[in-house]
Structures are given as C-alpha cells and as structure tokens.
Nucleic acid binder design. Structure first.
Length: 552
RNA sequence: GCCCCGGUAGCUCAACUGGACAGAGCAUCGCCCUUCUAAGGCGAGGGUUACAGGUUCGAGUCCUGUCCGGGGUACCA
C-alpha cells in the first residue's frame, strides 16, 4: 500500500549495492562505503558509483583499471533492469537503467495519484511549526512575508510526509512594544480631537496609527482618558485583523495563536525562574536578574529581568518553548529571522539545563530581505512607519508569485528585492513556467477527449521510447527522493528547483512529441505519460502553496 | 575585536550536501506558430566560482588566512 516509487528505486539501488559488494568480495577488494548517485551528464547513464575512485589508494592501482575490473565482474551476472554498464574517466562505473523500469514507473504514479512520492516518515507523528510571530504593532512587511511563506511551506512538507502539523503564531501582547503602541494611538487620538498631545519619543509613526485612532474615536467618542487600556487593546485587535487578512491572501492559516501573557498568568514564568534557580543558573546583579548562560557553554550571561522589573524577551520565550516541549510534539520547528542567531541557543541551553530534550527542535534562520527602490536601499522600520507592506506586494504581483519568489532562493541568502522591477519580474516570473506546463497538459487531455481519445489506465507504456520521453520519466522518478531530501534539510527551495527541471523536460517533450495523433495506442500511452507529469506538478505546486491552473 | 550567513555569467540566483566539461531565468543577438496553448522550443555570445594557500584521485562545496556585503555581539525584539 505505501510502497511508492521510493521503494522501486531503492530496491534497484539496494540490488546494485549488493551486487557491487559481492563483486568486491569476489575480487578480494576491501569493503568500503561508496555512493550511488545520478550523474550530471546524460551520456553517463542513470546511476553511477565512485567505488573505484575510492579503492584506488588502498589498491595502489589507477581507478580506471579498477573500475574496468569491477564492471567486468558485474557484467557477468544479469542485473535486473540494468541495460548496460560502462566505465568513464576518472573511474566512474555507470549503470544504464532500461526503459521498462521507467515505463513501469508511470503506471505506479497513475495508481498512486496524489499519494505518489509521500513517505511514511511522519505517520502517527506530530509537529509544531512556529512562524510569522510578528507582534501586532503594524502591518506585515515584505520581510515577514519571507517568514510566512517559508514556515507554511515547511509545514506543508511535513504534512506531505504524514506529520500532523500545528501551525502556530506566538506573539508578545505584554511587553513594552504594545505599551508604546497604545501610547502612540492615544497621542493620535488626542491630535484628532484637537487636543495637543505629545507624541511618544519611540512611538509608531505609521499612518495606520492615525486610522486606528479615528476608528476608536468613531466607535467610542471623544471622552476617553489618556491612559485608557482600550487604546492598546483596540489597536491590537485592528492590527491583528489586518495581519490575518494579509496571511489569508497567501492562503496561510494558523491552528493556534499563543500569547506571551499566558505564561505570566499560568505562573509558567515564575516556575521557570524557580527551576533555573534551583539549578543555580539564576543570579542577581546590579538590580537585574541574570541567566548564568556561561555555565551552559555560552559566551556571556544574559539578562532575564531588567532592573526596571520588566523581563527581556528571552525569559517568556524560554517558558514558551518549555511549554511547547511539554505538549509532546515529535518535532518542533521555529522560523526566525537572522537577528535571532545569537539568542535562540541561550534558550535551548536553558531548556537543556532543565533536563528537557531539545534535539527535536529545529531552528530555521532566514536572512533578511533588502528592499531596493531605484537602486537605493530602503531601510525598513515598523516604528518609523517606513516599510513596504506585504499587502502592497500581493496586490502588485499576487500570491503565487510572492510565494514562489520567497521559496525559490535559499533562506541562507540575502534577498534583494527591487521594487521597481517587482511588477516586471512578476510578468516573467519562473512560477508561470511551471503553471504553464500544468495548463498545457490539462489542455492536451481535454483535446484528447474531443478527439475521442479518452485517457484510460489501459495503455501500453512500452511504446514510450523516445529519448525525451525517457528523460521526462526519469525526472518523474526523482520526485520522491527530492521530497525526502527536503524533509531532512527543511529547505523548500529544492522543490522549486526540481519542478523547474520537470517543467523544462516537459516543455521539451512537448516540442518534440505530439501527444494526440492518428496512432491511437501511442496517443494513449503519451496521455498516460503527461497525466503522470500533471500529477507530480500538481503535488509539487500544492506543497509550495501555489495554484495549478487548468488554463492560462 | 569576536560569532553567524553570504560573495558563482552584465543582473537575480541554481548546482542532488566532495564528483565528471559549473547550470537556469532575465538582458543582448539569430531561428521556429495553416498542426494538442509561442507564458513555449532551438541556437549564439557571456566564467580564473572574491583573493591566496591547504586537504583529496577530484573542491563552488571541507580547512586556514585576507578582502567585500548583511546580521548579531543590549537591562531592544
């Protein structure tokens, strides 16, 4: 039932490894770990091994000679699905997989449909992905967009592999930021009703604050006192609605919102301090409360509670993670911006000191988005009201483009975003290349119907022998492997690269091989092929959260 | 100063985690629509993978140093 392709190629690989091992022992060569991987160039076949290169030193013989000897030995036994074995400099042994292997594989894909390529790794397991987690002090920026898309896609990847995923948004509703937000709204409110009021020094200067103040004025009238808590709570509510609307446009929804305040109310923070204290990891200095991080292998101690009595964010964050651990997830993923690089290890260290398991926590750090306008950097600051919102970007380009744009490059790389080119880029965005392939296939299938070639699973896949057909099928066969790799690395970019290649193979095939022709049986077989391409494209796009249009 | 992430074609980025002659898209220049969608295909040009060493049969990838960009090094988040 859950034997997908993975198993097919794995089986093939296992057989090859077994055969190579047998050959080694027959030849009295030492045992050694070696790789078995697809080569770069087509002419080297489908799978290559470097075993001869590795043996060269021990045997003090040229790798090419060793490769020949091993290849000859392997050729003596008939290996299933292997058409040919060749040797190429500097000493690779290449295996050519026969067409029937690939032809059979598309039957598997059609049978599995949207289950094709799913592993069972996460079956009966739970995962928590915390992302966005922006404090409700302003609209989401382009930078938050990177976080949002990354987190949601990682969650999709986990779900693909069977994990039951909780998407979680954690935010700070207790600290100084929200305090300042309230004061900013209050100041704008009094400005609005004509009473001169001093704007807080660190206040939020964005226009949206004025709008919120107007909302409050319209809803609650003009006799509110300066320190009324509703300035803060109303602002939080309104901003949160905006944030949710933006995320909604990206198709991102959360299962749980967790407020920092909770951890004060439940006593979790107090408890945490006590527990750390009993481990002698907390001390007082200069009126502040410190975490003895140096005792945990960190470079410096950190303040947990300022001398003003306010905690720093590390304290509630630690309590929050402790609570997340207690919920028993098999995997916990945090999506953080590069500014957290130096802070999350403190949190993990503190948790480990409390004898909590932390090795199932994966922290994904993404580098910042730099915005360019007319070649100049736009410095973003929510507080100063200088930012480009995610909404702006979405209305200009659309969800599919934004999602693809944020996922197609490595999270470890800085992202230069040229606003002037944003729209231009969106018109020749590579995401359309993928979607176009999908739409083309849908159209072919439709065309087949009008030509009375209804696609059925009853066709002869052995008719698919054209070189472009084989290349296309080979690409389809890689898919489960790609999904496995991505599960390990949690770098969604690999999917984008793969789909790009798959679409390219399809477009080439399309140029060379006509699907619907007078040759009925060939037409049926090719319909089977393009249908399986459609399945994989559709799966890949849905994992990326991108639509797979039937026409464009 | 120290720590983290980058530096690859004119521009934006890949490169299956150490493999074979480093690949795409934009941009430039050719060619291909009376035939399933030209948002496509085919071809040309464009590179000392920042630099210098080292490890290895083999380095864009690993180690050391230098330079450049970003982030951190807060009783900000």
């Amino acid at each position: 039932m859950r034997r997908g392709w993975s198993l097919l190629i794995k089986k093939l690989k296992a057989i090859l490894i077994e055969s190579i091992r047998a050959a080694l022992s027959a030849l009295n060569f030492p045992e050694m770990d070696f790789t078995l991987a697809p080569p770069k160039a087509e002419k080297f076949g489908d799978i290559s091994t470097n075993i001869a290169l590795l043996l060269s030193k021990d045997l003090s013989q040229p790798p090419l000679d060793i490769a020949e000897i091993i290849a000859e030995t392997l050729k003596k036994e008939k290996l299933n699905h292997i058409d040919d074995i060749t040797v190429s400099p500097p000493g690779f042994i290449n295996f050519l997989i026969d067409a029937s292997f690939y032809q059979n594989s598309i039957i598997t894909i059609l049978e599995k449909n949207d289950q094709y390529g799913r592993g069972g790794t996460g079956k009966d397991k739970t995962a928590n992905v915390e992302f966005v987690s922006a404090n409700p002090t302003g609209p989401l920026t382009v930078g938050h967009g990177r976080n949002a898309v990354l987190g949601d896609t990682v969650a999709n990847i986990l779900e693909w592999h069977g994990f039951h995923v909780t998407r979680e948004y954690y935010y700070n509703d207790a600290g100084q930021q929200m305090q300042i937000l309230g004061e900013s709204v209050s100041a704008r409110y009094f400005e609005l009703i004509g009473k001169e009021n001093e704007f807080p020094e660190n206040g939020y200067q964005g226009k949206y604050i004025v709008e919120i103040a107007r909302n409050i004025y319209e809803a609650l009238g003009n006799d509110i006192s300066k320190n009324d808590p509703r300035f803060r709570t109303e602002a939080e509510k309104i901003i949160f609605e905006k944030i949710k609307t933006s995320l909604d446009k990206l198709g991102i929804y959360f299962d749980q919102f967790t407020k920092e305040k909770t951890f004060y109310e439940t006593g979790a923070i107090k408890q945490l301090l006590e527990d750390l204290k009993s481990k002698d990891l907390i001390y007082e200095k200069e009126g502040a409360t410190w975490l003895k991080a140096t005792a945990l292998g960190r470079k410096q101690d950190r303040v947990f509670i300022k001398s003003s009595g306010e905690p720093t964010y590390r304290l509630p964050d630690t309590a929050y993670h402790r609570e997340k651990i207690s919920r028993g997830f098999n995997l916990i993923v945090d999506i953080f911006g590069a500014d957290h690089t130096d802070s999350y290890p403190d949190i993990l260290a503190a948790l480990a000191a409390l004898d909590l398991k932390t090795d199932h926590i994966r922290v994904l750090l993404y580098q910042f988005v730099t915005l360019l306008r007319k070649g100049e950097k736009v410095k973003m600051s929510t507080r100063k009201g200088e930012f480009v919102t995610l909404d702006n970007l979405l209305t200009e380009t659309g969800s599919d483009v934004v999602r693809y744009f944020f996922i197609m490059r490595s999270m470890n790389s800085h992202l230069d975003f040229d606003l002037d080119l944003a729209k231009d880029q969106s018109e020749n965005n590579p995401v359309y290349y993928l979607q176009y392939a999908h739409a083309r296939i849908c159209n072919i299938i439709k065309h087949g119907l009008t030509a009375k070639y209804e696609f059925t699973k009853d066709f002869d896949s052995n008719l698919l022998t054209h070189n472009d057909e084989l290349k296309l099928m080979r690409q389809l066969v890689y898919f489960p492997q790609v999904m496995e790799t991505v599960l390990e690395t949690l770098e969604p970019q690999g999917i984008a690269n793969y789909l790009q290649e798959l679409a390219a193979q399809f477009h080439k095939f399309y140029g060379k091989c006509r699907v619907i022709t007078d040759n009925i049986s060939l037409s049926r077989a090719r319909l089977g092929l393009v249908s399986s391409v459609r399945i994989v494209l559709s799966s890949g796009l849905s994992i990326l959260g991108i639509s797979a249009p039937e026409r464009m």
